[in-house]
Every structure is written in structure tokens, then in C-alpha cells.
């Protein structure tokens, strides 16, 4: 059976923008449409990371256990963005909780399936790697800014130039 219904959705998602048709067709086979209610868990820290999500609608958050109970939201991810890269690298385990802040519609991409396709087609693999690297670098940069405590007591002498 050909999953013709999901290919246009994948094509529309900013994360896959400009990916050649052949590649898209290949990865469509790894995609699945999913919905989450607000508050639902998309992933749990420590669980095997078997997929990632392309958010189509709504907002999810990355969470960590707070030092004194409860959880801390450390980042939110909105429609048009992608979340999850633990599936890329061993030990293939989630490092954060991911929860739906609002009702969420997303595409769940099967990581094992995708890793297989990438191994078989290194050009596709490289293309996907580039896209993931970009997202990772951007997230890392904004996490660094968060570490700076941007709105706290700040003065220019201590700020890095770049």
C-alpha cells in the first residue's frame, strides 16, 4: 500500500522544505499522523527513543524534573518545528520529557525506519543530518542565551561580543 495521503503534508512542513521528491517518497513510509490532548506525554525521559515529531499544530514543551519536585519547562516547540533527536544516536533514549501544552497534531517519524533508509541512501542521510544539525545548533545557541539570564542584572562589560 502506498501512503499517498501523508506525502503532501510532509512536503508542506518547513523541516522538509525543498527535499527532493525521491527522498520525500522514501521517508513518507516512516511517517504516521498523530494527535495528543493537552497535557499528554509525547515522550518520557529514559524511554527508548524510537521516533521524532514534526509539529503541525499546537505547542509541546521539553521538561525536566524540577530540583524541588514538579517539572520545569525549559523550551516550547511550536507548529512548523521539529522535536526529538535522541533516535539519531545511541543509546536511543529520550533525555527529556516532551508534553503537549495544547492539543497537538503532529507527524510521528519512525526513527528505526528512517535510520535504515539513511544507511541505504547516504545522500538522503546526509541531507537529513544537515537539517537536524541546523536545528540542533539553533537550539544550542538559544539554550546558551538562556544560560546568560538575559533579563537579569546585566551590564555590558560582562557580555560577550560576537
Amino acid at each position: 500500500m502506498k501512503v499517498t495521503t501523508l506525502e503532501p503534508i510532509l512536503r508542506e512542513h518547513p523541516f522538509f522544505a525543498g527535499l527532493p521528491d525521491t527522498g520525500l517518497t522514501l521517508i513518507t513510509g516512516c511517517a504516521k499522523n498523530v494527535r495528543f490532548e493537552a497535557g499528554a506525554a509525547l515522550a518520557r525521559e529514559g524511554d527508548p527513543a524510537e521516533h521524532f515529531y514534526l509539529i503541525r499544530e499546537g505547542r509541546v514543551s521539553l521538561e525536566l524534573p524540577a530540583p524541588h519536585g514538579g517539572t520545569v519547562k525549559i523550551q516550547t516547540i511550536d507548529a512548523g518545528e521539529v522535536v526529538g533527536w535522541s533516535w539519531l544516536m545511541p543509546p536511543y533514549q529520550w533525555q527529556f520529557d516532551i508534553s503537549a501544552v495544547t492539543p497537538v497534531r503532529a507527524l510521528e517519524m519512525d526513527g528505526t525506519c528512517l535510520r535504515g533508509k539513511c544507511d541505504a541512501d547516504p545522500r538522503l542521510g546526509y541531507e537529513l543530518m544537515k537539517r537536524f544539525s541546523r536545528v540542533m545548533v539553533e537550539r544550542l545557541a538559544s539554550t546558551r542565551l538562556q544560560l546568560l539570564d538575559l533579563y537579569g542584572v546585566q551590564h555590558p562589560a560582562s557580555s560577550p561580543t560576537s
Partner: peptide, 10 residues
């Protein structure tokens, strides 16, 4: 840490 439906991030 509290319920918050807006963004989290820089």
C-alpha cells in the same frame, strides 16, 4: 515551573 501555555525559550 507553574502551568504556562505561552512559549518557553529565549
Amino acid at each position: 515551573e507553574t502551568p504556562w501555555t505561552h512559549n518557553v525559550g529565549v
